Amino acid sequence: MEESDLKLTGSDKTNFLETAKWGKFLSIVGFIMSGFIVLGGLTFAGGAFSDLYPGIGGGIGIFYVLFALIYVFPSLYLYRFSTQIKSGIHNGDQQLCSEAYNNLRRLFLFMGVLMIVTLSLYVLIILFALMGGLMGGML
């Protein structure tokens, strides 16, 4: 890729600063939601629902905690992007803006891989459901 001296216009800076505000808000909400998911997972794992779900509460709790851990990463990348791009624009620091873009790239990469994994799991679930239905119909 060829290096160029790309300049940001005033409206570009305004758009990035507005994006940074919303990105920071969404990332903080993401961190808070991760905390609530962990609390929910610990509630299941701690046996609070052992009467309702005997034997599977711990498994559900572990699933919730793992889900919260996965949910933290996009929030972290978005938070880093938001704080770095705001600081980079205000200070005219090209290096900080480059780090912000790298965190935005990581966010999209993470979300893309997560989407591929999710869609693959959906396909597998549908295939197993169809196979189970066919097997059940043969009996």
Rank of each mutant, 00 (worst) to 15 (best):
T118M: 14
G30R: 06
M135Y: 06
F16N: 03
L121Q: 01
M33K: 01
I126S: 02
R80S: 11
K86A: 10
G30S: 11
L78K: 06
G132W: 04
F49Y: 15
V72R: 13
Y77P: 14
L26M: 11
A45H: 14
Y79R: 05
L66K: 01
A68N: 10
K24H: 11
E18P: 01
G112I: 07
G23R: 05
G136T: 04
G55N: 06
D5L: 05
K13N: 08
Y101E: 13
Y79M: 06
G10H: 05
V117L: 12
M131Q: 08
S82R: 09
A20M: 08
Q94F: 08
R105V: 11
G41R: 07
I89Y: 05
Q84A: 15
T43A: 11
M131E: 00
L124F: 06
G61D: 13
V117W: 01
L104K: 09
G57R: 04
Y122W: 13
R106H: 11
A45F: 15
M1Q: 06
Y122S: 07
V123C: 06
L107V: 01
K21N: 09
G35L: 09
G40P: 10
S4G: 07
I89N: 01
F31E: 02
G40Q: 08
A45C: 03
Y71S: 10
T118R: 11
F73V: 12
Y122T: 04
T19V: 14
L8C: 05
L134D: 01
F110H: 09
L52W: 12
G136P: 04
F25C: 07
G59R: 05
L17T: 04
T9K: 01
G88W: 03
Q84T: 06
M111P: 01
G40I: 09
I89R: 04
I37M: 10
G61P: 14
